[in-house]
Amino acid sequence: PDLGLTQLFADPNLIENLKKNPKTSEMMKDPQLVAKLIGYKQNPQAIGQDLFTDPRLMTIMATLMGVDL
């Protein structure tokens, strides 16, 4: 199971919303991170391994779920 990750990354406004959010806007200036996020739309399971190697993803996930870290 993808634990709902498919829906989190399926939002067509995902990148724009993250660019507008004060907690994630600075991160979204990294083209490699943006490319990763776009890739998760097609393969949400890929985030599982990346969560352990890129701490920014935890902040992004929390933001998408509405959790304040």
Rank of each mutant, 00 (worst) to 15 (best):
M27P: 01
M28L: 07
Y40G: 02
Q7W: 06
D50G: 05
L37N: 00
P55F: 07
M65D: 04
G4I: 15
P22T: 05
G48L: 15
I38R: 09
G39W: 15
P22I: 06
P44V: 09
D30I: 02
P22Q: 05
K23M: 11
I38H: 08
P12D: 10
V34P: 01
Q45V: 09
K20V: 09
T24W: 02
D11Y: 02
L37W: 00
R56W: 07
F52E: 11
A10Q: 13
K29T: 11
T59P: 03
G66D: 12
K20S: 13
D11H: 04
Q42M: 11
Q42H: 12
P44R: 03
V34C: 05
L69R: 08
N13P: 03
L14G: 02
P55W: 10
N13K: 09
Q42P: 03
R56K: 05
Q45I: 10
K20C: 07
K36V: 08
T24Y: 03
K36G: 02
V67D: 14
L57K: 00
D30L: 01
P31L: 09
I15F: 06
M27F: 14
Q7R: 08
L5P: 07
N21L: 05
P12L: 05
A10P: 02
D30P: 00
V34Y: 03
V34I: 14
M65A: 09
L57E: 01
N21W: 07
E16T: 07
T59Q: 11
P31R: 06
L57Q: 01
G39A: 13
D30C: 03
D54A: 00
L3V: 13
S25F: 05
Q49W: 08
A10T: 12
L69H: 14
L14T: 06
A10I: 08
L51Q: 07
N43L: 03
L8H: 06
I60S: 00
P22C: 06
K20L: 10
M27K: 01
L33R: 00
E26C: 07
Q42E: 15
I15R: 01
I38M: 14
Q42R: 06
P44A: 08
K20Y: 07
K20M: 12
K41M: 15
I47Q: 04
P12Y: 03
D54Y: 02
P31I: 07
F52N: 09
P31D: 08
Q7S: 11
G4R: 15
T63R: 03
T53G: 08
V67W: 15
N21F: 05
